[in-house]
């Protein structure tokens, strides 16, 4: 089974704030990491390859330094990766991102299965996987907790769907979004990090994909538009309690009594 895993580089910490006066973002330093939810889908890809053979390649869209995310995926065991990078892709919303990814997927050799993580820890939208499957015109299924190969040309996927667990057979090629916390992702291997062949990675830019119309990508290809960013609102009518710990405990218990939560 030949598998593509979509991964993303995300900020290393969530310490981003808006300056209430200038309305501008402040971030302490600029550290990045591989999206934690992707670790589960990478692990899923590895275990499928171990069981059924085939290849695992990673794909990511981002700035040039997003190559790091691919490296980490390869250190975990993937065979190689593709970095989709071009300034035309900047400012992309989910739709423009999934369209760009679909163009890159068309450029890659054939695949049986595309795996995505549940969501990213920065955007948190959980939308790109489903949108990518639509752009590619292949079936998709979300919140997968297990994948098995039981019949030629199909996979059997068990899915966590709110109040029920659904097991379905789905034809290949297809796209599966993997739930979080469903396996124990392996650690990147130091040995592999020393052995990765240079040709394991390819870069694609706008010039390398079929649809080169800039208005389909990045900010221009986005349908949503961020009008404004602002710090969270504050509750104006709050009471601040002060005093020694025992005074504070008494004040809280008085509030609880008045509210009939105790007594």
């Amino acid at each position: 089974m030949d598998i593509l895993v979509c991964v993303k580089q995300v900020p290393g910490s969530s310490d981003v704030e808006v300056d209430p006066v200038t309305g501008v973002l402040k971030r302490e330093g600029f550290s990045t990491k591989l999206n934690p939810y992707d670790l589960y889908s990478i692990e899923m890809a590895m275990s499928l390859r171990e069981k059924y053979g085939g290849t695992v390649r990673a794909i990511t869209m981002g700035p040039p330094q997003a190559k790091q995310a691919l490296l980490e995926t390869v250190w975990m065991g993937a065979d190689g990766g593709v970095l989709l990078t071009d300034r035309a892709f900047g400012g992309a919303d989910c739709l423009a991102t999934s369209y760009a990814l679909s163009q890159a997927v068309h450029k890659m050799s054939s695949y049986d299965l595309i795996l995505c993580g549940k969501q990213t820890t920065d955007g948190d939208t959980a939308q790109v996987g489903s949108e990518l499957s639509e752009e590619l015109g292949i079936p998709n299924i979300g919140n997968a907790i297990s994948i098995k190969l039981e019949r030629e040309g199909f996979i059997t996927v068990t899915q966590n769907l709110d109040d029920r667990i659904v097991t379905a057979e789905i034809p290949l090629p297809c796209l599966v979004c993997v739930d979080g916390d469903i396996n124990s992702p392996r650690l990147p291997s130091y040995k592999r990090s020393k052995q990765v062949p240079q040709n394991a990675f390819t870069s694609l830019t706008l010039k390398d994909i079929e649809d080169q119309d800039k208005t389909h990508y990045g900010l221009l290809g986005s349908r949503t538009n961020v009008e404004r960013i602002f710090p969270p609102e504050k509750n104006a009518d709050r009471k601040t309690l002060t005093g020694t710990s025992s005074e504070l405990a008494t004040q809280i218990s008085d509030i609880l009594k008045t509210g009939k939560f105790i007594g």
Partner: peptide
């Protein structure tokens, strides 16, 4: 939005 302590207004 942006994985930070920020709200975004989107249309």
């Amino acid at each position: 939005a942006f994985g930070g302590n920020i709200m975004a207004q989107i249309i």
